[in-house]
Amino acid sequence: MKNEKIAFLVDSGSDVPQNILEQGNMKVIPLKIIYKDGEYTDKVDIQPEELYDRLKEEIPKTSLPDGETIKNMLNEIKAEGYTKVIAITISSGLSGTNNMVRLMAEEVEDLDVFVLDTKNVGIGSGLHAVQALSYVEAGMDWETIKQKLQDGIEKIKIHFYVDTLEYLQKGGRIGLVSSLVGNLLNLKPVISCNDDGIYYTVTKARGSKKGIQKTIDCSIEFANKAKKYDVAVCYAGTETKKIIDTIAETMKEMLPNIRDFYYDTISPALGVHTGPGLIGIAISQLED
């Protein structure tokens, strides 16, 4: 196994932590953000705060990169001497990236590409890349890695709170989350991805404070189903960062068996669909 060269390909919507990207030499497929006046590359020539400032004037659209870009990245990996690739993307129920990677992988000869549909989003998807890297570094064989990643889909979950459902609704990403009653009664949903990788409401609470607390409670409950876990918190907007700092400390106090803890803003491409005010907590249940 040590003689096999395994590369990593992830999409920018997976919000893989920077240290993991560097440690695994992972290539990132950049999602696109499209305004009336031009196209921007996620995390490259547009940053989160710029996006939120511009939301007051225009809500842009997002798109995956063209197939040729992905194919070129796979060919670069092949040229670097790799024979196998682990490709990790956000849910196929939220983006066409997963399917595009699959299609392009079929066009590159002599490269074994395993494409994981995480059924997840943001750092919830990124934690699968964390696990993939740990498996490769542990020297596991290719078939075992693929099976463990597939079996691990249900062991990673993100719960998130958004201050308003306006952006999810306008971006067509509302999924199974109902917005009408919530707007009338100030009910704040705690949102996650279901088994099909579609947004759904886990629970509701009246008002922001209770909604955030429910998000914390749901995450702790999921983490406590395992003896060890990785934890990641994410946010959208500078105002939200003040809250997430406190949440991060709460999670560390309430969950004593954390292996690794990650903390970052969400990518601009995801921010298009949530707007500022998102608070997310992802848990990766680890084996004993």
Rank of each mutant, 00 (worst) to 15 (best):
Q213L: 10
S125Q: 04
K36P: 09
L21S: 02
K61I: 04
Q18K: 15
F114D: 05
L31V: 10
N224P: 01
I220F: 08
Y82W: 06
L168Y: 11
E253H: 15
I258E: 02
C234D: 10
I244W: 01
V16R: 04
V28C: 08
W142I: 01
G13L: 05
K227D: 14
T97W: 01
L31W: 02
A138T: 04
E109Y: 12
I33Y: 03
L176R: 13
S267Y: 02
K61W: 14
V272F: 06
M1C: 10
D141L: 09
Q169L: 09
V113D: 02
E249N: 15
V44E: 15
E166R: 09
N3I: 13
I70K: 03
T62Y: 00
K228C: 04
K228V: 07
R102M: 10
L94K: 09
D151L: 01
V28T: 14
T144Y: 00
V233A: 14
V101P: 02
D45Y: 13
I6W: 00
Q169P: 04
P30W: 01
I6N: 10
G171A: 07
T201D: 12
E49K: 09
P189V: 08
Y52M: 09
T250I: 14
I90S: 01
D230A: 11
V272T: 04
T118Y: 04
M100E: 08
V16I: 07
N72Y: 02
D230T: 10
I198F: 07
K214W: 07
D53E: 15
K119D: 00
T83A: 08
